[in-house]
Each structure stands twice: as structure tokens, then as C-alpha cells.
């Protein structure tokens, strides 16, 4: 029963508040909660893939692969997250545009870097200038997913590496004794048992990931913190709904959201741990 919001200046009290909280701008704010949850849902499989790949690379028999794994985890874990979040999307974006420029505009021989400017032909822009705002958002979102996957994958690789080492030697020896191949041992014995040891570390990582989502705004994606700051700021008569500085309320709402999210995740991780421990000797 949303009333008539066409003349905000005439409204008062609850009616004003109801209209205020349902402006299209607020809808963007509510939508951004889904963006954050969507990012988490999309990124986690990539983080696990990077983590597993990194962990197995670190334990590979081939020395160069091992070095690559060690280089990845050491380098990414040693550089501040924020530097990577700034570096990876820009490097990826310019890399993609440079390649497209070379392929799509072979007649343009001029340099791509002109002084301060990075100039590619219009057809090589990613996404194209003519693309809709939605495509631009999606592109930014994809770059963000890659950045998060690279950074958090390195931490996950270390956690998984440690968990793989923690699987009792006797289990592997027994599997060898019954004639399983290395691949079979990995699939049937090591990976299923590894989770019990990996879950505490991964749950830590998940909490940090949840709290790292406000970094999204660095990548040009309007996340909940951006909208809270924008909506909460003092508004003059230039706006339909002028109000004083309300950031405290907006940030308070965010606090509740993050607490709820981490609380629900904790319950989820407890269930996962219980499931992974089924039938394991010594586990709780």
C-alpha cells in the first residue's frame, strides 16, 4: 500500500519515510546487496579451483610446476590485497584491449600508449563504448571475480596444501598396498579426508572474503558500502528528499547485514565440518 509519492515535499512522517525508502535510488541500494551475495556465490568456485590448482602445483613432481605454485602463493600472499585489486583489473582490461586492438585494427600502426593516454581503436574497446550500461557492469563484475579468485586462491592454496599434508601417511600407504594408482589415491583417499583439515582455514578465509567485498567499489562496482555512503550523506533541497547526515543509520544497517551473513556462514561451516568428519577416526 505505497501511497502517492509524486510530491515528496507535501509528505510527512511515516508516509515520507515510506516514499523515501522506496525511491529508485534506494532500489539500487537494495539491489547491491544481491550484487555482493552474487559475487560471493560466483567467486567461491573459482577460489577453490585456484586453491586446488595451487596446492597440487606446490606438491607436483615436476620442479618448474612446483616453482610456479610456490611463486604464485608467495607473491600474492606477500602483496597487499588492495594493490592486487587495483592492479589485476587494470592489467587485464588493458591486456584484453591491447590484444583486440592488434587483431581487430591491424591498419592502425600508431603506438597504443600516447604519452599518458592508453588509446586503442574504438572497435577494440572492451566492452564497446556503445554497449549498454549493463554490459559494462557485467564486464567490471567479471574482472572483479578474477581479481578475488587470484588473491583468495593463493590463501586457499596454502590452506589446502597444509590439509593435504595432514592426511595420515598410513592411509596413503595402505592405499598403495592394495594397488591403487596415484590418481586413485588422490581421488578416493586424500581429497575426501583433506576437507576436515582444510575447513577451519577455509572458513577463516570465507569470513575475510565477506568482509573484503567493500573493496568492490575500487573496481567501479557500486556495492552496499558505496550506496550507504551516498544515500546517508546530507542532502540539500536539490534533492527530492532532503535530510541531514544519516550515515550512522545506513552504516548501522550494514553492520547488521554483515553480522547476519557471518553468523549464518558459521552455522553452515559447522554443518559442513560435521558432514566431512563422518566416519573418520579421531575426528569429532
Amino acid at each position: 500500500m505505497i501511497g502517492d509519492c509524486s510530491d515528496p515535499a507535501a509528505l510527512e512522517g511515516a508516509a515520507w519515510m515510506l516514499c523515501y525508502l522506496t525511491t529508485p535510488k534506494h532500489m539500487n541500494f537494495y539491489w547491491s546487496f544481491l550484487t555482493v551475495l552474487g559475487l560471493l556465490a560466483v567467486t567461491v568456485p573459482f577460489i577453490m579451483a585456484f586453491g586446488l590448482a595451487g596446492a597440487f602445483a606446490k606438491r607436483a613432481r615436476l620442479a618448474p610446476v612446483r616453482w610456479l605454485g610456490a611463486l604464485y602463493t608467495t607473491m600474492v600472499r606477500g602483496v597487499p590485497d588492495i594493490v592486487f585489486f587495483l592492479f589485476v583489473p587494470i592489467a587485464l582490461d588493458q591486456g584484453i584491449e591491447y590484444l583486440r586492438h592488434r587483431v581487430l585494427c591491424p591498419d592502425m600502426v600508431g603506438p597504443v600508449w600516447v604519452g599518458n593516454d592508453f588509446v586503442v581503436c574504438p572497435a577494440a574497446k572492451a566492452p564497446l563504448s556503445t554497449a549498454s550500461a549493463f554490459v559494462h557492469d557485467l564486464y567490471g563484475f567479471a574482472l572483479a571475480v578474477v581479481a578475488y579468485a587470484i588473491v583468495f586462491g593463493a590463501f586457499a592454496a596454502n590452506v589446502i596444501d597444509g590439509a593435504l599434508r595432514a592426511v595420515p601417511k598410513g592411509q596413503v600407504e595402505a592405499a598403495e598396498a592394495v594397488g591403487m594408482s596415484p590418481g586413485q589415491i588422490r581421488r578416493r583417499i586424500v581429497l575426501p579426508q583433506m576437507w576436515v583439515y582444510a575447513l577451519p582455514g577455509l572458513s577463516n578465509l570465507w569470513m575475510i572474503l565477506v568482509k573484503a567485498t567493500p573493496l568492490l567499489f575500487l573496481l567501479g562496482i557500486e556495492d552496499i558500502v558505496y550506496w550507504a555512503r551516498e544515500l546517508g550523506g546530507m542532502k540539500t533541497q536539490a534533492f527530492d528528499y532532503p535530510h541531514p547526515d544519516w550515515r550512522l543509520w545506513y552504516f548501522g544497517a550494514l553492520m547488521i547485514f554483515y553480522l547476519l551473513l557471518t553468523w549464518v556462514s558459521q552455522i553452515g561451516f559447522e554443518r559442513l565440518t560435521a558432514r566431512a568428519s563422518r566416519g573418520m577416526a579421531g575426528a569429532r
Binding site: 515528496p8 525511491t23 529508485p24 535510488k25 532500489m27 551516498e230 550523506g233 536539490a238 534533492f239 527530492d240
Partner: peptide, 17 residues
């Protein structure tokens, strides 16, 4: 989009000013 009246995000969520 944060400098009224030069440029700001209006209540429709659009750039205005």
C-alpha cells in the same frame, strides 16, 4: 555524482545537476 548542484545522483538514481 557527489557534488550538488554541479553533479549528483538524484532520487531516481540518475545523474542530475
Amino acid at each position: 555524482g557527489a557534488y550538488p548542484p554541479y553533479n549528483f545522483i538524484n532520487d531516481k538514481g540518475e545523474i542530475d545537476g
